[in-house]
Design a protein around this nucleic acid. Structure first.
Lengths: 187, 187
DNA sequence: ATCAGATTGTGATATTTGTCACGCAGGGAA
DNA sequence: TTCCCTGCGTGACAAATATCACAATCTGAT
């Protein structure tokens, strides 16, 4: 399990055994059951999470009670309410399990301490953040350029496994369409 | 002009005169006229740009000839086609001036060299990237939760000056609606 | 001053998508 | 088994938005 995180980091920066032990000592391991919440909207967001196994969704609940999925987080993904985490403010979104899930958790102060002390980790997180930014930008682009059907096809191409693992209602909520419309797309 | 970049960086990390001189020596200053392109789709993206004055837009042109604005970049913003820049691949978008603009340009290798050598700058760029990611995520959220009118009002609130500086057609293209629909919103 | 082009508003209509309502199938739990 | 709940499809209709067409105004360049 521990090795999963190491492999993930070493895809970008190589670490000695000692360095990885150092890094790893800042993480806490935690497991959750399907449907559990890692945190709720309104709560303090203590951790950023690395998904070792399982599946999460980052959800925003609007005033009218509708649920919008900002992001899914599969194995090897980092997830949290980044705004709340970085600025230590209350979560505006909730993070919930779609499957039984194991995560590695890191506190903001440990994240910052690692970055300050280990240039390799600062670099690692910088690259991760850059690509997170790029990913979001491409999702924006898909809202700008594509209709519901095209967005669904792009999702299918990009994350084929999601379609098996997640109920269509949630896929619809991620794509920004009603479940009825989504259901009519593949006809 | 130079001071603009320094103040911008020092909002996050403090630099000695020598340190700033070091940092600044890696930038090239450049000016563009309204309508000029900093780079075109398909071109190599040599630089990331810091906007000292003026206004840019990051534009995607789809197959059917429509233009979609992924982002505006005002004073104090960093902009480029980040995917093309980081991975040194061809631009999928174009970066164009909406006003006469002055930018500071940095090559990828200089960006990486600064990050590797100056922890302060690595930290600076990490924070910038994190907030860039957060900003994109909130734009996604606004597509998920809001209709055209609400998105327009959010834009108005967030960047009131844009409404004066940019033709409505471009605002519409940023918001993901037709210009006609946008025009009917404030009635 | 004049002209060409850009910008904006608006009517008429088509298309896309949402909402509400209903039925059906499958999976657990008692 | 029986029952409830969730997921999923689909019909009918409403609402949001796009598209096409045209006119008016403004702007910049000659």
């Amino acid at each position: 399990m521990k090795e999963k995180l190491r492999e993930h980091i070493e895809r970008l920066v190589s670490l000695t055994d000692d360095e990885f032990a150092d890094v790893f000592s800042h993480f806490k391991i935690d497991t959750f059951k399907k449907q559990d919440f890692l945190f709720h909207k309104g709560a303090r967001v203590n951790y950023a999470y690395f998904v070792a196994s399982g599946l999460l969704m980052l959800v925003h609940n609007d005033e009218s009670g509708k649920q919008h999925i900002v992001s899914f987080a599969m194995e090897d993904w980092w997830e949290t309410d980044f705004l709340a985490f970085y600025t230590q403010t209350k979560a505006t979104m909730s993070l919930q399990c779609l499957e039984d899930t194991t995560v590695f958790c890191i506190l903001l102060e440990d994240y910052q301490e690692l970055c300050a002390r280990l240039p390799k980790m600062n670099h690692f997180f910088l690259v991760k953040s850059n690509f997170g930014h790029i990913g979001s930008q491409q999702r924006i682009l898909s809202f700008l350029t594509s209709n519901a059907k095209e967005r669904y096809e792009q999702l299918l191409q990009r994350y084929p496994s999601l379609i098996q693992r997640v109920p269509k209602t949630l896929l619809a909520s991620y794509l920004g369409v009603s479940r009825e419309t989504l259901s009519r797309l593949y006809a």
